[in-house]
């Protein structure tokens, strides 16, 4: 790509993209701090802490996929299908082992 093609529209888009990346990055660091704080301070029951940690983790994975790995952008339909396929197969395995073996 030569620089003459970078019009103001493209510049605006890049700027927004950068903003989103930074916001996500800050949020992820925040989430991590929250997660550590919950465990370190014993602020919550185990009952609440474990599901909350899991939710925070899932959101972070979502950020990772959609913002840092650009799954929200066009042209990433195929990776999305494959990733969700893999998640499906992995969840199935975990669900089966949890439900059938240890329940």
């Amino acid at each position: 790509m030569d620089n003459t093609n970078t019009n103001s529209f493209q510049k605006q888009k890049n700027k927004e993209e950068m903003k989103k990346q930074l916001i996500t990055f800050v949020l992820m660091i925040g989430f991590t701090i929250v997660a550590f704080a919950i465990v370190a301070t014993n602020a919550m029951d185990k009952m609440f802490a474990v599901p909350l940690l899991l939710i925070l983790a899932v959101v972070q994975v979502g950020f990772q996929f959609y913002y840092f790995m650009h799954m929200k952008d066009r042209g990433h339909e195929f990776p999305s299908v494959m990733i969700y396929g893999g998640v499906f197969a992995a969840m199935l395995t975990i669900a089966a082992l949890v439900a059938i073996v240890w329940w």
Partner: peptide
């Protein structure tokens, strides 16, 4: 341990 885990992993 649990020997059924092998069967699950193997057949998955």
């Amino acid at each position: 341990g649990n020997s059924i885990i092998w069967q699950h992993l193997f057949w998955i």
